[in-house]
Design a protein around this nucleic acid. Structure first.
Lengths: 198, 198
DNA sequence: TTTTTTCTCCGAACAGTGTTCGGTATTATA
DNA sequence: TATAATACCGAACACTGTTCGGAGAAAAAA
């Protein structure tokens, strides 16, 4: 028994560490996350963790990239059969929904890019950005979205991005304990922006 | 000489501490802000600071409230003689401009609300929110903005807020070193949203 | 199987953090 | 001038992330 190979066990421990980190963030917040408590909870000594991650930041970067993948997948996952405007709306809603469903990931992504060492690793929505850009280019090509002077595809994408990113952030910070039908409000706001581009 | 009264000196020291904190945040980032380094730079011992602030968080809260006042003032300061739509646009631009001109304040405001102890002190835009709400109610009354079902004054305000808040955050994080004519893009995006409401 | 080599993991230590406490000057009040 | 309040500091406490040297276990080589 216990015929797990080295790599398998190594991968399992990594997952356990990441999972524990997420739980602790959910419980006490990102700023109170402590390597030593991760170690305690996962049954290792503090030094032991360094066999699996180079640093505390390394753990967070790993989670940030993981979140990035999920976010991107959520945006891509919208059926391409739908009318382009509905597709755009759903992609936007998926972005906000990701923030709500994965608050820890979303917060990590935002805290890391705040002070990153100028690497151009694709964190947060820097890569889901391109997904939105493509959808919007299609919408423009189909004549459903109107480009103006100084407000082409990229600028429009920036507008949508600001809108949905703001929705996600506000939801996790200022409006955390605020009760409302966000789903409906968000949809309306997104549709309003689309309407403004016609 | 040095006939400053006690209160005056106390107030001066408080200001010096706050100012130093801001400088350190600008230099190394909020997460690397250290009480001991503030003390070092201001010529006090670490313990000495506790005569002026209850804790490190107390310093940050003070700065957050200060930023809140400035933000609110900036939003209110828009001339009320202008056409209501232009007034709304300028107020939105002022919000984003505040984030760019006072990045340390803006970041503190957002990091504190992220994990606040459920006090309902008005931090960040929770109070500038009401400024926007009033402008938008006027715009609706004048027939320049159209209310829809499930999308009244408050929901519209939430939409604007998400948009400009996202602009501010993105500008200070993901798009920090990104060169573009943000002023123009932001104006266009805001006008687009307004257009969508007519 | 025995002997290396590699991998895991830990204890101890280092430098750093926020904060508290006791005591000593300094300043203002009486 | 005597008394009370204030300002400030040194030392300590409990915490943090990280490094290093050395055990013990597992895998690979002999």
């Amino acid at each position: 028994m216990m015929k797990n190979t080295r790599q398998e066990r190594q991968a399992d421990t990594r997952k356990a560490i990441l999972q524990t980190a997420l739980e602790l963030i959910a419980e006490k917040g990102l700023d109170k996350l402590s390597l030593r408590e991760i170690a305690r909870r996962v049954g290792y000594s503090p030094a032991g963790l360094y066999e699996y991650f180079d640093s505390k930041e390394d753990i967070l970067w790993t989670l940030a990239l993981e979140g990035n993948d999920r976010l991107r997948a959520a945006a891509i996952g919208i059926s391409s059969d739908l009318p382009i405007k509905e597709r755009l709306t759903l992609a936007c809603l998926a972005y906000v929904d990701f923030a709500v469903q994965n608050p820890e990931h979303f917060i990590i992504m935002n805290s890391l890019t705040t002070r990153r060492a100028s690497l151009d690793e694709p964190v947060s929505s820097e890569s889901s950005y391109s997904v939105f850009l493509k959808i919007i280019e299609v919408a423009i090509a189909e004549g459903e979205l109107l480009v103006q002077e100084n407000f082409g595809a990229e600028e429009i994408t920036y507008g949508f991005w600001s809108l949905i990113h703001g929705m996600g952030i506000l939801r996790l910070t200022q409006l955390r304990s605020f009760e409302a039908d966000f789903e409906k409000m968000n949809r309306k706001a997104i549709e309003t922006f689309i309407t403004g581009l016609q």
